[in-house]
């Protein structure tokens, strides 16, 4: 790791993990505590820890359509902390998905405040389901929201055309009788 003017710069990583939807708060607390302990043991620093709530997943994971999503962002000297967190999480039967990503290099550890594990992060909060596709109005146009600050007609019409091509039954292929 780079040494700049005697100060050590760290890397920022984040790990997102999904806990079984039927797990109770005790399990969640134990898992979260384990992440904190692992980072602390390897001289890292947790700078973000969010409970994204129990939400519907795009497909069932571990036979459950829902999952409790937790997000941990931390500073570390190298990737060993990531390995260690992933190893620890894999040992937990209630953790069904783990995904880690490097966010930034050369982060000054003093520029980011440490986040403590508070009780509200161990609570299970249900999140409303997102629609699978953007809602369309009668004219088949795409949803208008803050993201569509420009003319979105092209994407909407392209989606309609593209979707038709993908319906799996083109001309001359009407399927078996």
């Amino acid at each position: 790791m780079k040494q700049v003017e005697g100060k050590e710069k760290l890397r920022e990583y984040e790990t997102i993990f999904i806990v079984r939807a039927d797990a109770n708060e005790e399990v969640l607390q134990r898992t979260n505590k384990r992440v904190y302990e692992t980072v602390a043991r390897l001289n890292g620093k947790i700078v973000r820890f969010d409970n994204l709530g129990r939400k519907k997943l795009a497909f069932p994971v571990a036979k459950n359509p829902k999952g409790i999503v937790m997000l941990a962002g931390y500073l570390s000297r190298d990737g060993k902390t990531v390995d260690e967190i992933q190893r620890n999480l894999r040992m937990q039967d209630d953790v069904v998905r783990i995904h880690s990503k490097r966010i930034a290099d050369d982060v000054d550890p003093e520029s980011k405040a440490a986040v403590d594990l508070t009780d509200d992060k161990n609570k299970i909060v249900d999140v409303a389901d997102e629609p699978l596709r953007p809602e369309r109005d009668d004219r088949g146009r795409g949803r208008r929201d803050e993201f569509d600050a420009y003319d979105d007609d092209f994407v909407a019409s392209a989606l309609a055309e593209h979707g038709d091509n993908e319906s799996g039954r083109g001309r001359g292929d009407r399927g078996g009788r």
Partner: peptide
């Protein structure tokens, strides 16, 4: 919600031709 703008109804990634 943002990424859903870039996948088709089948869940495929839209090509540049369509996503722009």
């Amino acid at each position: 919600s943002m990424l859903r703008n870039f996948i088709s109804e089948r869940g495929k990634i839209l090509p540049r031709r369509l996503s722009g």
